[in-house]
Amino acid sequence: MDRPLIQTVDLIKYFNTPGGMLHAVDGINISINKGETLGVVGESGCGKSTLGRTILRLIEPTSGQVLYDGEDICRLNDKQMMEMRKKMQIIFQDPYASLNPRLTVGELIAEPIRVNKLLTNKKEIDARIFQLMEIVGIDERFVNSYPHELDGGRRQRIGIARALALNPEFIVCDEPVSSLDVSIQAQILNLMMDLQDEMGLTYMFITHDLSVVKHISNKIAVLYLGQCVEYADSEELFKNPLHPYTRALLSAIPIPSIKKRDKKRQLIRGEITSPIEPKPGCRFMSRCDFSCEKCSGENLQLKEVSPGHLVACVQVGQ
């Protein structure tokens, strides 16, 4: 089935700052099919998290559409949106900051159920709490513990249980494993992939860690300063990266193997430029080794260079 569950059409989010308009998300067109995972990668400040939140309407978009199963959710009123949010959930990056320290594990997991009045009977709620705890792999004995008593991995499992409590179809995962140790990170990634298989969940997986994104995603969107610069199937992107930024990003990852130790890394110069009132043209131009006059001037559009592989670069696909 290839119907997209989530689709954005020219999605734009600008923030008004004293220095001018900050282009956080600048015309993003993505689509995610049901049961698939879209990986969104980029450096800090490229608009990954803003994109995730705008799709859920936790931040109102400046313009553009977010289509959920063909329906534009930006037009929904508060009551309809509340109904819609049952289907769309988010897992946050920091399991230390995203849980209320004054609620116990049981209360934390019950909170979304109570707020949305999914279940009202206390017995049923309790049964559901234990069921969710089992699904995400937290031992029953922790039901009365507070978040500070648990380690990061267990806290992130609570975050997942809260997201699953409403039986969502779509989950935005905003760097869910970035603050965890590698061995715990692997446990959580396995859990998330198992849940996807069992429940047919659709994920939008936001991360800066390319090895994680390769592992979990079907498709990948590479973001740079609010714009999507490359969009392709996961395997294709890693095998055949076309945009100079994607290439630099891939070559910057330290690889845990000594075989590649002496390979010359392709370092990119400089740092990410300001997203406030960016100049027209390619935003990566100032750091790019291949830039020419054609790069400045018009705004670049994603071009399909091979089936399903889209790149926004004047040098590619000519």
Partner: peptide, 19 residues
């Protein structure tokens, strides 16, 4: 175990082998 926990960039592994 530490090495098994890292998603590999070179091979396609279906499941990680965590500790």
């Amino acid at each position: 175990g530490l090495f098994g926990s890292i998603p590999s960039m070179e091979e396609n592994v279906q499941r990680l082998k965590p500790i």
